Measured scan of single mutants.
Amino acid sequence: NKFNKELGWATWEIFNLPNLNGVQVKAFIDSLRDDPSQSANLLAEAKKLNDAQA
């Protein structure tokens, strides 16, 4: 379904953000699993944090 596809894509993108540490990645992935409907918002937050830590 739509959420599974978005969840998978967001998970892959978060895993590939180079400036996040393992704890941050795990926290974002756990949040995605808790509420897949928020995948776009969580991915945006992860990208912002990644950019801030560059």
Rank of each mutant, 00 (worst) to 15 (best):
N1H: 11
N1V: 07
N1G: 11
N1L: 11
K2F: 13
K2A: 14
K2T: 13
K2E: 15
F3T: 09
F3E: 11
F3N: 05
F3L: 12
F3K: 03
N4Y: 10
N4D: 15
N4V: 02
N4Q: 09
K5G: 13
K5R: 07
E6K: 05
E6Y: 11
E6D: 12
E6W: 10
E6S: 06
E6I: 09
E6G: 06
E6V: 09
L7E: 09
L7F: 11
L7Q: 07
L7S: 09
L7N: 08
G8V: 13
G8D: 13
G8P: 08
G8C: 13
G8I: 15
W9N: 06
W9D: 09
W9P: 07
W9E: 08
A10T: 13
A10Q: 08
A10E: 08
A10G: 05
A10I: 15
T11M: 15
T11F: 15
T11R: 08
T11V: 15
W12V: 09
W12C: 08
W12E: 09
W12N: 13
W12Y: 11
E13V: 15
E13H: 10
E13R: 06
E13W: 11
I14E: 03
I14V: 06
I14W: 03
I14H: 01
I14D: 03
I14N: 02
I14L: 13
F15R: 11
F15Q: 15
F15C: 11
F15G: 04
F15V: 12
N16C: 10
N16S: 10
L17W: 02
L17E: 00
L17F: 08
L17T: 00
L17A: 01
L17Y: 04
L17I: 01
P18G: 07
P18C: 10
P18Y: 03
P18T: 07
P18R: 05
N19V: 01
N19E: 03
N19Q: 03
N19W: 14
N19A: 07
L20T: 00
L20G: 00
L20F: 00
L20Q: 00
N21T: 15
N21K: 06
N21H: 08
N21Q: 05
N21S: 14
N21D: 13
G22Y: 13
G22R: 12
G22K: 15
G22A: 11
G22H: 14
G22N: 13
V23N: 14
V23M: 11
V23R: 10
Q24W: 02
Q24R: 00
Q24M: 02
Q24C: 02
Q24I: 02
Q24F: 01
V25Y: 03
V25H: 03
V25R: 14
K26Y: 06
K26S: 10
K26V: 07
K26R: 09
K26M: 13
A27I: 08
A27C: 07
A27Y: 14
A27K: 12
A27T: 11
A27D: 09
A27L: 13
A27M: 13
A27G: 09
F28I: 04
F28W: 02
F28T: 00
F28H: 00
I29V: 11
I29L: 14
I29A: 04
I29W: 06
I29N: 01
I29M: 08
D30W: 05
D30N: 12
D30M: 11
S31M: 15
S31L: 14
S31R: 15
S31P: 00
S31H: 10
S31D: 03
S31C: 04
L32G: 00
L32A: 04
L32V: 06
L32K: 00
L32M: 12
R33S: 07
R33L: 14
R33W: 14
R33Q: 10
R33D: 03
R33K: 12
D34M: 13
D35F: 07
D35M: 04
D35H: 09
D35R: 05
P36H: 02
P36G: 02
P36C: 04
P36I: 04
P36S: 04
P36A: 04
P36W: 06
P36Q: 03
S37Q: 09
S37Y: 06
S37M: 07
S37A: 07
S37H: 03
S37D: 07
S37W: 04
Q38D: 07
Q38K: 14
Q38I: 05
Q38S: 13
S39R: 07
S39C: 09
S39F: 14
A40K: 11
A40C: 08
A40N: 09
A40E: 11
A40H: 12
A40L: 13
A40M: 14
N41M: 12
N41G: 07
N41S: 13
N41F: 13
N41K: 14
L42W: 03
L42I: 15
L42P: 00
L42H: 02
L42F: 05
L43H: 03
L43T: 03
L43C: 09
L43K: 01
A44S: 09
A44E: 15
A44Q: 09
A44V: 10
A44Y: 10
E45T: 09
E45P: 00
E45Y: 11
E45W: 08
A46K: 00
A46Q: 01
A46S: 01
K47F: 07
K47G: 02
K47D: 02
K48M: 12
K48S: 09
K48C: 05
K48F: 12
N50W: 02
N50H: 01
N50F: 01
N50V: 01
D51F: 08
D51H: 07
D51S: 10
A52T: 09
A52C: 08
Q53K: 04
Q53C: 05
Q53S: 04
Q53I: 10
Q53F: 08
Q53R: 04
Q53E: 04
Q53T: 05
Q53P: 02
A54F: 08
A54P: 05
A54D: 07
A54T: 08
A54I: 07
A54K: 07
A54M: 09
A54E: 11
